[in-house]
Amino acid sequence: MKKKRTPVINKAAVFKTLIAIMPFLFACLLWELAARNSSRFAFLFGSPTLVLKYLFNYICYDNGVSDILITASEAFSGFIVGNILGICLGLGLAFFPRIERITRVYIIMFGAIPIFALAPVTIMWFGIQFLLKFMIAMLSTIFVATEHAYTGAIQSDPELIMLLNSFGASKKQVFSKVIFPSSINSVATSFRITVGLSLVGAFIGEFISAEKGLGYQILKSSGLFNIPGVIGGVLLIALLAIFMRAILFVIMRAVIPWHYESKKPFQV
């Protein structure tokens, strides 16, 4: 009996991808036609070809690559440190409920402050270099991470805690074997949110004061009425966010495989 060959290209997946990008391609077509028909429209909104032309020059002949790396490093470092601190804080509060009762209102208060409102003051606190962008990115993520880690920990399955108690487990054992692993799903959800927040934080930091980075480039383009430049910069930030989410998905799928058995791709 002949062995059935596995097709090299999954036709169904290709078809689904094409269907997904069709609206985007159709919108770009309309946009391009409108820009070619009206110079005023082209000035106000640019066109896909102008954006692509700008991006090509920016990446190949200008500081495009270094700007992307700078913004990515600011966002990524803020994301990592913000989440590590936030997770430790959230889990710590779950482990020490007495401290949580005292600190809860302060965490809610600080979490509600829009960090961007403090942006002008942050220049005095952190200067104008990398530290400023890092701190804004980090502060944008820490309270979200704290809330998710804490919520995930206190929502641990009481039946699993009862199981450990039936073995005579200590509080530390219950925490390490049930509560901490239980919080990982909530922490993974927090990562999905804070990836975007850290990028926004880095972007805002560059908006406030920068000489490099995608935020700086967007601001410069805006000042020169270079609409393709603005749109191109925004597009690069969006692609950076998708890239960070993809990296996160790969890492989390390796770290918490039980969470991803039936999940769709990119569902971190």
């Binding site: 039946e159 699993l160 199981l163 450990l164 073995f167 487990a169 054992q173 692993p181």
Partner: peptide, 24 residues
């Protein structure tokens, strides 16, 4: 104590769930 539901830890493979008692 064996409960009505299995109460296996979802993040542990079957073998490690069986070893939980020994770890405790």
């Amino acid at each position: 104590y064996m409960f009505q539901n299995d109460r296996l830890l979802p993040w542990r493979r079957a073998r490690n769930n069986a070893l939980l008692g020994l770890e405790m």
